[in-house]
Amino acid sequence: MPGIGSEIVRDSLVVGQVIGDVLDPFTRSATLRVIYESREVINACEFKPSQVVNPPRIEILGNNARALYTLVDYVMKVMVDPDAPSPGSPTEREYLHWLVTNIPATGGINSGHEIVAYESPRPSMGIHRLVYIVFCQMGMQTISAPGWRQNFFTREFAEVYNLGMPVAAMYITCQREGGYRRRRR
């Protein structure tokens, strides 16, 4: 029942307002697995900043064995934080945490070309959504690194490089870990 799984994924992206804030509605045509250490990401699950210090292992399973992907961390893979620096005042929306292109369907993300190195999330206030977005490229592409990480716009990026709609997306939430509390005297 592939339709049921894709409906659940889209619903969680809608409920989490990823669809709307970051992406337009799309039809999922690839499976995205994101794994931090040994913990697999499930849409909308919460991670602490200490759990996402290192880049995750990414697996993209598509219908085309010859496909190339881009991941915007957000395969092309992109990872973004639409809530930077804080959810109440996202003046740096969307903050780019990672950008990997030319990821072969059979070789995995390590065989791709890292355009923007992974930067671990460090939310200072509020709950942040970290979005992993995968685009299917039409072939090997030369994609330039943006000159900044803040105010990266996934929709504009996809348009400039003719990436079309995403083929997969998921997100996690992350918030500042509790520090010490001063004792009141």
Rank of each mutant, 00 (worst) to 15 (best):
residue 2 P to H: 13
residue 3 G to Y: 09
residue 3 G to L: 06
residue 4 I to W: 08
residue 4 I to C: 01
residue 4 I to L: 11
residue 11 D to R: 04
residue 15 V to C: 01
residue 17 Q to S: 14
residue 18 V to A: 03
residue 19 I to T: 01
residue 20 G to W: 03
residue 21 D to P: 02
residue 22 V to K: 10
residue 25 P to L: 05
residue 25 P to Q: 08
residue 25 P to C: 06
residue 25 P to N: 14
residue 26 F to G: 02
residue 27 T to G: 12
residue 29 S to R: 03
residue 30 A to Q: 05
residue 32 L to W: 04
residue 32 L to T: 11
residue 33 R to Q: 14
residue 33 R to A: 10
residue 35 I to L: 15
residue 37 E to D: 10
residue 39 R to D: 04
residue 41 V to A: 13
residue 41 V to R: 01
residue 41 V to P: 02
residue 42 I to K: 12
residue 43 N to E: 13
residue 45 C to Y: 05
residue 46 E to C: 14
residue 51 Q to E: 14
residue 54 N to Y: 09
residue 54 N to W: 02
residue 56 P to H: 04
residue 56 P to Y: 02
residue 57 R to G: 06
residue 59 E to R: 06
residue 63 N to T: 00
residue 69 Y to N: 03
residue 70 T to R: 05
residue 76 M to N: 13
residue 77 K to P: 05
residue 77 K to H: 11
residue 78 V to C: 12
residue 79 M to G: 03
residue 79 M to D: 10
residue 81 D to K: 04
residue 84 A to H: 05
residue 85 P to A: 11
residue 87 P to R: 00
residue 87 P to L: 08
residue 88 G to P: 00
residue 90 P to D: 08
residue 91 T to G: 04
residue 92 E to G: 01
residue 93 R to F: 15
residue 94 E to G: 10
residue 95 Y to E: 12
residue 99 L to G: 01
residue 100 V to E: 05
residue 102 N to C: 01
residue 105 A to E: 13
residue 106 T to P: 01
residue 107 G to S: 07
residue 112 G to I: 15
residue 113 H to M: 07
residue 118 Y to S: 01
residue 118 Y to W: 13
residue 122 R to P: 03
residue 123 P to F: 02
residue 128 H to M: 12
residue 128 H to S: 04
residue 128 H to G: 10
residue 128 H to P: 05
residue 133 I to D: 08
residue 133 I to L: 08
residue 134 V to T: 15
residue 137 Q to R: 07
residue 138 M to T: 11
residue 140 M to Q: 14
residue 143 I to D: 12
residue 144 S to L: 12
residue 152 F to V: 04
residue 152 F to R: 02
residue 153 F to T: 13
residue 154 T to H: 05
residue 158 A to M: 07
residue 159 E to R: 14
residue 159 E to K: 11
residue 161 Y to W: 06
residue 165 M to D: 14
residue 165 M to V: 13
residue 168 A to V: 07
residue 170 M to Y: 00
residue 170 M to R: 05
residue 171 Y to E: 09
residue 173 T to D: 12
residue 177 E to N: 09
residue 178 G to V: 06
residue 180 Y to D: 12
residue 185 R to D: 11
